[in-house]
């Protein structure tokens, strides 16, 4: 099994104070309102214990049958400033990655710059880990990713 270490950042300027952005992370009710799947999924487990050492879980079955499991542990929380967590991501029970995710909130006037820095160990466990994502023939961005990963190469080779 190969391991790839990689890092990326995402920056967003949000029209809300750091306190409001922080609040969106701090309770299960608030976080469930936005940290969610866009389609009709079946939620299998959903928990959030937002404190250092506390855990979060979002375990769900997608319409195509894929079961995704996000399991996080909070390592550092500074109110309205930063949240550091480590999360594992599973697809159909196979671990795809372990990531250190640092979220920084910086006030910019009445807005907040959200800086997401993710350092991950990405585990490639062969096709089994990702087979669940192959469903349907309708083109959308997920299919593109599948294509990039080479799983649908036979479709056009």
């Amino acid at each position: 099994m190969a391991v790839t270490n990689a890092m990326f950042t995402i920056e967003r300027v949000l029209r809300a104070s750091p306190a409001r952005v922080f609040a969106a992370y701090a309770t299960l009710e608030a976080k469930s309102a936005w940290f969610k799947a866009p389609s009709d999924i079946e939620t299998l487990n959903r928990d959030l214990d937002f404190r250092v050492g506390g855990k979060e879980r979002f375990h769900a079955r997608w319409p195509g049958g894929l079961v995704t499991d996000f399991q996080a542990t909070y390592h550092d929380i500074v109110e309205n400033e930063r949240i550091i967590l480590v999360y594992d991501l599973f697809h159909n029970g196979d671990k795809l990655s372990v990531s250190l995710l640092t979220l920084e909130l910086r006030a910019e006037g009445d807005k907040t710059r959200l800086i997401h820095t993710e350092q991950g160990s990405y585990l490639s466990g062969g096709d089994e880990a990702v087979k669940g994502r192959e469903h349907g023939t309708t083109w959308h961005i997920d299919n593109l990713v599948a294509l990039i990963e080479g799983r649908e190469l036979k479709a056009f080779v």
Binding site: R20, V21, W34, S97, S99, H116, E118, V145
Partner: peptide, 17 residues
């Protein structure tokens, strides 16, 4: 894939806020 996932979540965060 990971960036796409998080960007989608942050779109939803913006809507929520």
């Amino acid at each position: 894939e990971r960036k796409r996932f998080w960007n989608q979540q942050y779109d939803q965060l913006e809507t929520y806020l």
